[in-house]
Amino acid sequence: MQNIRNAGTEEVQAICGGSLSCATCHVYIDDVPAGAELPPRSRDEEDLLDASDHLEENSRLSCQLVFGPALDGVRVTIAPED
Rank of each mutant, 00 (worst) to 15 (best):
G8K: 10
R5S: 15
L38H: 10
I29M: 04
D50C: 09
T24K: 07
V32P: 10
G68C: 04
P33F: 11
G18S: 12
A23T: 12
P40L: 10
D30K: 11
E81M: 10
S52K: 06
E10L: 14
R75D: 09
V74N: 02
E37H: 15
I29K: 05
E46G: 15
L61V: 11
M1G: 09
V74L: 00
V76S: 01
G8R: 12
C22N: 14
N6T: 07
I78F: 05
S19D: 13
D72Y: 15
A36F: 08
D50K: 15
C16R: 07
E81T: 06
R75C: 12
A36H: 03
R5H: 08
C22K: 02
G8D: 08
A34G: 13
L38Y: 01
P39N: 06
A36Y: 10
L20W: 09
T9F: 13
L65S: 03
S19K: 11
A70S: 07
I4E: 00
Q2K: 12
R5Y: 07
P33L: 04
E57G: 03
A36I: 04
V74S: 02
P80S: 03
A14M: 10
E45C: 05
R41L: 15
H26L: 01
L49Y: 07
D53P: 15
E37V: 07
L20M: 10
E37R: 02
A79K: 00
G35W: 05
G17T: 14
Q13I: 11
L49C: 15
D47L: 13
P40V: 09
R5W: 08
D47P: 12
E56N: 02
R41I: 03
L20S: 12
F67P: 13
A36S: 10
N6F: 05
L65M: 10
D44K: 06
L55V: 09
A14R: 12
E45L: 08
G17K: 06
E45M: 08
S62Y: 04
F67G: 10
F67T: 03
D47R: 10
E10N: 13
L61K: 12
P39D: 04
A14C: 05
L71W: 01
H26R: 04
A70V: 12
V74P: 08
P80C: 07
R5F: 05
R75T: 07
A70G: 12
R60K: 00
E81I: 01
C16I: 06
S21R: 08
V66L: 15
V76Q: 01
V27G: 04
I29V: 14
G18C: 02
V32H: 04
